[in-house]
């Protein structure tokens, strides 16, 4: 079973952004540039998440999806603000291969069933964003980690799988953006409870963290953001700064500060490291990617 390595790109308006605990968003560049770089590095999949769509109903994401899917030939999952079957249809028509549902699915679980019946299980990813409570249980949140639901994350994970979801995207809001490592208990308990693939998200700061969530968290796929983004910016900062469109908080990019807990790295380096740990990843062929 090959472990999938996925680049997660959070999108606000025309920009790639990154926050901590899904908040305090920094602008990092344009999503298409990062997506292309990750494709060329050997990413196995891409995830585009519109981080404000649930709040404002905005979906400028579709234009970005359409542009990306013309030149990037790996699976692309799109999430953020998709509420209806028509929204899903639009995302697929723009070029997405799968969609990730959170807020709308938890409010109306029937949507998962309707969507899998219409578009096939393999097209529907249910995204669960969870916070660990002092008593040890995990609560699912919606609206990109802002709204508590009172729903138990494990019960919801089992229900989503029973409703026909093809995969689960599990994000620890506690760890998200911190670089402190994945919430291994959250990922493992869900991976052991459902028969469908589980994608771990939130907290990757080093290649070792990625290895840990595969071995101890039982993840089938791993989503990464900060450790890829900050590495790419460092390598190629000037070019990217020139390409970004001004919207939102640009202070981080202007300051050129590093981000201490996160050891920036690339897909080839992560996959090579996992290989030394006995894990199987897709190694892209030696040929260069034709641009």
């Amino acid at each position: 079973m090959t472990i999938r390595m996925i680049a997660r790109l959070d999108i606000k308006g025309p920009n790639l952004v990154k926050g901590i605990h899904l908040e305090g968003l920094r602008v990092l560049g344009t999503p298409e540039q990062f997506a292309k770089a990750y494709y060329e590095q050997g990413a196995d999949e891409l995830l585009y998440m519109d981080v404000v769509a649930s709040l404002y109903g905005r979906n400028s994401l579709l234009d970005i999806v359409a542009r990306t899917s013309r030149e990037i030939f790996i699976p692309l999952t799109v999430g953020g603000g998709l509420r209806t079957l028509e929204d899903i249809q639009q995302a697929l028509r723009a070029g997405a291969d799968k969609v990730a549902l959170n807020t709308a699915a938890i409010r109306n679980p029937t949507l998962v069933q309707d969507a899998t019946t219409r578009f096939g299980s393999s097209t529907i990813v249910v995204s669960i964003e969870a916070i660990r409570k002092p008593d040890g249980h995990y609560e699912a949140y919606t609206d990109n980690g802002r709204e508590p639901t009172g729903v138990d994350a494990f019960a919801w994970a089992r229900q989503a799988a029973e409703l026909g979801a093809g995969e689960l995207l599990i994000t620890s809001i506690d760890r998200e953006g911190t670089g402190e490592g994945f919430d291994l208990e959250l990922t493992r308990r869900i991976a052991e409870a459902v028969p469908i693939p589980v994608i771990a998200c939130g907290g990757a700061g080093t290649a070792q963290h990625v290895a840990d969530v595969i071995v101890h968290g039982k993840a089938d796929a791993v989503c990464m953001a900060s450790l890829l983004h900050y590495h790419l910016i460092k390598q190629d900062g000037k070019k990217r700064r020139a390409g970004l469109e001004a919207e939102g908080n640009l202070e981080y990019l202007k300051s050129r500060r590093g981000f201490s807990k996160i050891q920036g790295t690339s897909f080839p380096a992560i996959k090579a490291f996992l290989g030394t740990q006995g894990m199987i990843c897709r190694q892209p062929a030696g040929e260069t990617v034709h641009a």
């Binding site: 079973m1 090959t2 393999s122």
Partner: peptide, 15 residues
């Protein structure tokens, strides 16, 4: 089982 891990069906991923 596949290389010590569960081989889930559907197969979703690279092979």
């Amino acid at each position: 089982r596949d290389h010590g891990r569960a081989a889930k069906v559907p197969q979703v991923g690279w092979n």
